[in-house]
């Protein structure tokens, strides 16, 4: 006889959770237009958090490294992109083509910074403390504090205004529903990165190695592969994705401070834990659930907004201690 879990599994299993969350919120709100607006906001937030969290999940899963310094990549990504956009402010007002080029340069700049910073961080800071969690926490926390001070020294403590291309400003109004264009852009970009990562992990030999390494690093080495090279590559990829996530979040917030990365880090850790370490699908699922929960609860019970994601994490961990979609079965 099938259990409830088997039956649910046939219809999509844990992938039904965002739908169930949406359905419950729809019933509780009773206002379809607000529900659509909040759902799109939640999906967009989820996709930006996914960008920030996916790299951390892979680094956690593959390298067994607790990198509290990950939020530094988010902050730097945000400030690098914001600075490039500020420097190209003339382009932002120079028509669609120039504005798109400025946006692309800002995003590519943050990715390039993330790659370089990831290479430096892995070789100088992380490598000496592999297999030593306590020292990892101490040294990456230290690196995070130094990074935040560097941002303060370079960009100052006053909030930095982020310029946005005019074609991403405003909203589409459909009936009573308002859909912010930037949120749609964030959703599409996040989805594209997810598809790209899935292709990388499932259709390439490097991806196969990453998936294998998440499960059993020793065995990957025993098959003749230099795991350290894989570590560097994955760490750089994770840092670049975090920087891209930070850049997108900067455009979403439009006013950023050096504390941006630290503020997002709690949400990023929650997503990685509830998604399942080393799992890109789990990270996406966790990010979308967290994004939707934050927006729905913010509307229905604003006083519970801060606690909602913690309650969500506790509930999911009690139900599935390894996360919703762990990479290792």
């Amino acid at each position: 006889m099938d259990t409830i879990s088997d039956t649910l599994g046939r219809f999509g299993g844990v992938y039904l959770l965002p739908l169930a969350l949406g359905a419950v919120a729809f019933i509780l709100m009773g206002a379809p237009s607000s529900w659509v607006t909040l759902t799109i906001a939640g999906l967009a937030m989820g996709m930006m958090v996914f960008l920030m969290a996916s790299g951390l999940s892979l680094v956690f899963g593959l390298m067994d490294v607790l990198n509290f310094g990950h939020s530094a990549f988010i902050s730097f990504g945000a400030f690098v992109a914001a600075s490039i956009l500020a420097g190209l402010s003339g382009w932002l007002e120079g028509g669609w083509f120039l504005a798109s080029a400025a946006l692309a340069l800002a995003l590519l700049g943050s990715i390039a910074f993330g790659l370089a910073a990831g290479l430096f961080f892995e070789t100088v800071i992380i490598r000496p403390v592999y297999r030593d969690h306590l020292r990892q926490i101490l040294i990456t926390m230290g690196a995070l504090i130094v990074s935040e001070q560097l941002i303060l020294a370079i960009w100052g403590g006053t909030p930095f205004t982020v310029a946005r291309p005019t074609f991403l400003e405003g909203a589409w109004i459909i009936g009573d529903v308002s859909i912010e264009i930037y949120r749609v852009f964030a959703f599409v970009l996040g989805l594209s990165v997810f598809v790209g990562l899935m292709l990388l992990l499932n259709r390439t030999r490097i991806g196969l190695l990453i998936r294998a390494g998440v499960e059993n690093r020793e065995m990957v080495e025993s098959l003749g592969f230099k795991i350290n090279r894989l570590f560097i590559g994955v760490f750089m990829l994770g840092s670049a994705l975090a920087a891209l996530g930070g850049a997108m979040w900067a455009g979403y917030e439009t006013l950023i401070t050096p504390a941006l990365g630290g503020e997002m880090m709690i949400v990023v850790f929650i997503v990685v834990i509830i998604g399942g370490l080393g799992s890109i699908e789990g990270t996406l699922l966790g990010a979308i659930i967290v994004g939707l929960t934050a927006n729905y609860v913010g509307f229905l019970a604003p006083k519970l907004a801060l606690a909602s994601n913690m309650i969500l994490m506790m509930a999911i961990l009690m139900w599935r201690p390894s996360g919703l979609k762990p990479a290792v079965k």
Binding site: A212, V214, E215, M219, V328
Partner: peptide, 10 residues
Amino acid sequence: PENMGIFGGL
């Protein structure tokens, strides 16, 4: 190895 070292997700 003794635990076979199979990659279960592959």
